[in-house]
């Protein structure tokens, strides 16, 4: 690998810019390919660059064969994101777990007493209203949204944005009864059963979790399951 390629790749990663590193297995020739069609490094056959852009979209590193030659396409996408609404006790455990699992974590709570950065060392904390925060963050197919406040004033606006965004996971804390009332409120606001059916509630895998950290484990496990074993098979 040429040093210029390594430095440019590290720069792209630092800037959260999606890029694919393409390597010819025969001679080690290398190029960087971007989603918008730009490229840098050694010259690439057009068909290989096309494969690299497809791999970027699919978020899947893989070998590709073009014209009898094998290339390795290494996808470097920015980390998947988890937006956690509610800077509560469970969040203190969950935020760290999600970061360890490779997520970029944003904790959002308009209640300043909760959203105290000192309670979340090294985690991005926002005191915006959750709907404003989500609209700013533009949640995509590599984003998970988790609501943990128990407070409809705060959780509902987040869910209203999330169910109409292409996020891969939406989970809401609360008992079946709490969730039933939540669904009633959101239905009255015009949300469809298909939209509301995307919300995982009660949140987390049923593992008998009790403490905040155990509940965080059950949430992290469910998010992982949905991401890695989706019913349609399109894991990101």
């Amino acid at each position: 690998m040429q040093r210029t390629i390594l430095d440019r790749l590290n720069g792209d990663r630092a800037a959260d810019r999606a890029v694919a590193l393409v390597t010819a297995l025969t001679n080690g020739a290398q190029a960087l390919v971007y989603a918008d069609g730009a490229a840098a490094g050694d010259a690439l056959p057009g068909a290989v660059a096309d494969e690299a852009r497809a791999a970027l979209r699919a978020d899947k590193s893989q070998q590709v064969e073009v014209g009898g030659e094998t290339w390795f396409v290494h996808v470097h996408n920015p980390p998947a994101r988890m937006v956690i609404v509610g800077a509560v006790h469970i969040t203190q455990a969950l935020a760290g777990m999600a970061e360890a699992a490779g997520y970029s974590v944003i904790v959002c709570d308009p209640r300043r007493a909760f959203a105290d950065a000192a309670r979340f060392p090294a985690i991005e904390v926002s005191t915006e209203w959750p709907d404003d925060a989500l609209n700013r963050l533009v949640p995509d197919h590599r984003t998970a949204v988790v609501t943990l406040t128990h407070d409809p004033k705060i959780d509902d606006p987040a869910l209203e944005v999330a169910v109409r965004a292409p996020v891969f996971y939406i989970g809401a804390l609360g008992s079946r009864r709490t969730h039933g009332k939540r669904l009633e409120r959101l239905r009255e606001k015009g949300f469809s059963d298909d939209e509301l059916g995307r919300i995982h509630a009660p949140i987390g895998l049923a593992i008998g979790a009790r403490s905040p950290a155990e509940i965080a484990v059950s949430i992290m496990a469910e998010v992982t399951q949905v991401r890695r074993q989706p019913p349609g098979g399109n894991a990101t």
Partner: peptide
Amino acid sequence: MSSQQVAQE
């Protein structure tokens, strides 16, 4: 670089 990338290897 995000904190995640620093935290991870």
